[in-house]
Structure formats: structure tokens, C-alpha cells
Simulated scan of single mutants.
Amino acid sequence: MEFDWIEWYGYLASLVVFISLTMSSIIKLRIFNFVGCIIFAHYGLLTGLWPVAVANLSIALINVYYLYQIYSSKEQFKLVEAEVDSAYYLHFLSSNEAEITKQADHKSLGEANCSFYMLRDNNIAGILSGLKEDNGTFTLLIDYVTPKYRDYKLGAYYYNNSPEFLKDKGIKVLKTKATDKDHCFYLEKMGFIRTDTDSGKVYKKIL
């Protein structure tokens, strides 16, 4: 049987679109969906299926529009101190427990003495929680952002563009351990420097 590469090209487009819908990050979803739609549009042109080509090219342009909106929009960011024993803080941890406990277990979370809500346009987008020492070192146990806001803007803003938000809270040095490869990539992208120790990979950033 002769290999029909055009048919498999269509399957590839379907696979990329399917993968895009599994992404929790809006940025990744838009990018993968854009790529899938471009492949589908090309497939439509190759096979003479003009409705397929036009529809997917239109969706690709919509993805470009929303990606532009995400990267060009001027947003407001703010850190608000969170009481570690407050009802809402405990509710936030409980609601996002499955992902948060990948960074720190319940025992470690109970030892946290300093926490902040990360606000984006006055919406709680995530939390920073950990151990703050008198010398200004803040050991991060949790750096968690909800899926809706998981596009690196929060980390880039607080860690790189406007570190004074953290400095105003008496924090001079950030320290944390990486939990997986994605976490390592994120920390390095945010400017943390890695040090390998007996207990694992420790990342540090001086503000």
C-alpha cells in the first residue's frame, strides 16, 4: 500500500490541536493551537478543502490576536501579605492542594512564617510562601500561580522587573529547591543561580 503522506499530515495537525487543548497554560495553549491550525490550513490547501483552510487560518489569526493582547497589555501587579492561619489562605491551599504539594509537603507548609498573595489586576493569581529570616533571606516553599495566570508574567515582574515589591517587605535574597525539570527551567528563566548540594539542587537569587 502506497504511503499517503498528506493523510498523515492531516493526522499530525489533529494531534497538535489535541495537545494544545491539554495545556494548562493559556500561553502554551494558544501557541500549540496556532501551530496546529497553520498545519491544518496548509493541509486544506494541499487537498483543495477550502473550508478547512479558511476556518483554521481564521482560528490561527484569532490565536495571534490573543497572544498579542497577553504580551502587550499593561497590567497592575501587587503583593499583599497573607496570614498563614487565615481562613482564605487555608482555603486557597486546599483548593490547589494537588499542585501545591508537589512543591512542599504539609509539614513544610505548616512551618511557613511569611506568605504573600500575588495580585494581577486585583485578582489573586498565586502565592509566595516560605521562611523569612532576620537577615532578609526568604526560603521559598511555594511559588504557585493558578493556571489562568501561568504565563511567566508574575515571576518576571516580581523577580526581575520590579524586585522592590519584595525588597519593601525586607527580603534581600530568595532561595529555593527545584522539584522537577520544569521548575529548574522556570527558576533559571527568572535569574536564579543553581548550586548543587547533597540535599539537591538549590537555587538562589539576590535582589
Score class of each variant (00 low, 15 high):
Leu61Glu: 08
Asn135Arg: 12
Leu29Pro: 06
Val16Ser: 04
Leu12Thr: 14
Glu81Thr: 11
Lys107Gly: 06
Phe165Arg: 05
Thr47Pro: 03
Lys107Thr: 11
Leu29Glu: 09
Tyr158Asp: 02
Ala41Ser: 15
Phe3Ser: 07
Ile6Thr: 14
Thr137Cys: 06
Thr137Gln: 05
Asn113Cys: 08
Leu166Arg: 00
Asp168Trp: 06
Val52Cys: 00
Ala178Tyr: 07
Asp180Ser: 12
Phe77Asn: 00
Ile206Gln: 11
Gly10Glu: 02
Tyr88Gly: 06
Ser73Leu: 09
Phe3Met: 09
Val84Leu: 06
His106Ser: 14
Leu109Ser: 02
Asn96Gly: 06
Ile127Val: 13
Tyr186Cys: 04
Gly130Asp: 02
Val64Thr: 08
Gly170Met: 14
Leu49Gln: 12
Asp85Thr: 14
Thr197Met: 08
Gly136Lys: 04
Ala13Glu: 01
Ser25Arg: 05
Tyr158Trp: 12
Tyr157Trp: 14
Ala98Gly: 04
Gln76Arg: 11
Gly200Ser: 12
Asp168Glu: 15
Leu119Met: 15
Asp151Leu: 14
Phe18Lys: 05
Asp168Arg: 13
Tyr152Asn: 14
Lys189Met: 11
Tyr186Met: 12
Ala82Val: 05
Gln69Trp: 12
Asp180Met: 12
Thr176Glu: 08
Leu93Ile: 09
Tyr149Cys: 04
Pro163Gln: 04
Thr176Asn: 09
Leu141Ser: 00
Asn123Asp: 15
Ser162Cys: 08
Asp4Val: 08
Gly10Gln: 00
Tyr11Val: 04
Tyr71Lys: 12
Tyr88Leu: 08
Leu79Gln: 01
Tyr11His: 11
Gln103Asn: 08
Gly10Ser: 04
